[in-house]
């Protein structure tokens, strides 16, 4: 079994409204899996179904090859988007309580909390009430209680909201470390740059349907437009060379780099022409200063896929 979590044909409706329509995903073990989609697409519903907070109308979820059962909550750590802590409860007591709800014994929970509190250098918060903490501080506690029972599967819904850039980085590094230690992570966010940094696999949900999923690098390849960024030193024959290239290839954009006098082009190749053909041709026209394929980023893919689904 290479997939830790498999969701098969999940259907969930609220009255007349269908929140999820036959959505299937497979989350490979030890990976970071981005669950993406616009607001109201159904991501949170799917996450809640995985956490057994909501029951699906149809479809099945398998964790580690077993159909999801109540005991599995101990193997899942969930940081919801709508999160908080008991305000008038002390930090330490609260963390112990939440750890015990996840099935840890009191002494185990204490040991692990001590480790995390030391790691985040927040040992002196133990006897503080949550209402005395700042939002960022409370978020750190929230992160600790999510991961401290060492779950196989971690689910983070917008984990970086409420963190300043420094602490967001700290959390990002923790997530990567947890992944390296063997945890599988489902990561739901709108922040595409963090998807780019973290996610190996993604699934895109829009209007209750999964419209895209797979390895991020594969998806990027699929979304390539076969367009290349080129800069050419033509030895002051820019205008002529441009005309020559335009007659043979589809040039979408040209600028003349005044400083280096290079000719900059965007060329879209037609089916059947390889980048090598282009490269060979260009080498006869001048000195190639820059040659790179345009790779779409996660943001482009997101927008394109959602627009196509309209």
């Amino acid at each position: 079994m290479s997939d830790l979590l498999v969701a098969e044909n999940i259907v969930k409706s609220y009255g007349d409204y269908t929140a999820l329509n036959k959505v299937s995903i497979a989350v490979p073990r030890g990976s970071i899996f981005g669950l993406l989609g616009p607001n109201g697409a159904g991501k949170t519903t799917l996450i809640r179904i995985i956490n057994q907070i909501t029951l699906p109308d149809h479809g099945k979820i398998y964790l580690d090859g077993e159909e999801l059962k109540p005991d599995h909550v101990q193997q899942i750590g969930y940081l919801p988007e709508e999160r908080g802590l008991y305000k008038s409860m002390k930090v330490g007591e609260q963390a112990l309580y939440l750890a015990q709800l996840k099935g840890l014994s009191k002494s185990d929970a204490k040991k692990r909390l001590k480790y995390w509190f030391e790691k985040f250098e927040i040992g002196d918060w133990w006897n503080k009430k949550v209402q005395e903490l700042s939002k960022g501080m409370a978020q750190k506690i929230q992160f600790i209680v999510t991961v401290m029972h060492q779950p196989k599967l971690l689910i983070f819904d917008e984990p970086f909201s409420g963190f300043d850039p420094i602490n967001a980085n700290l959390i990002k590094d923790e997530i990567l470390q947890l992944r390296d230690e063997g945890a599988t992570v489902i990561f739901s966010t709108h922040r595409m740059e963090s998807v780019e940094e973290l996610c190996e696999y993604i699934a895109l949900i829009d209007k209750s349907n999964k419209i895209l999923d797979g390895k991020l690098s594969d998806i990027k390849r699929d979304f390539r437009t076969n367009t290349f960024d080129i800069a050419l030193d033509t030895n002051n024959r820019n205008i002529d060379v441009k005309a020559e290239i335009s007659s043979k290839f589809q040039v979408s954009e040209t600028t003349i780099n005044t400083l280096g006098n290079d000719l900059a082009l965007k060329i879209k190749l037609e089916e059947g022409t390889s980048s090598n053909d282009l490269l060979n041709y260009l080498s006869t026209k001048g000195k190639i200063a820059h040659f790179a394929e345009q790779i779409p980023n996660a943001n482009d893919i997101f927008i394109k896929a959602v627009n196509q689904n309209k």
């Binding site: 956490n51 907070i53 999160r83 908080g84 008991y86």
Partner: peptide, 17 residues
């Protein structure tokens, strides 16, 4: 209180409502 402090979803990911 549990609703307004938003802890409820954290709790019910561990126990049944």
């Amino acid at each position: 209180e549990e609703k307004t402090s938003r802890i409820v979803e954290v709790i019910i990911s561990s126990v049944k409502p």
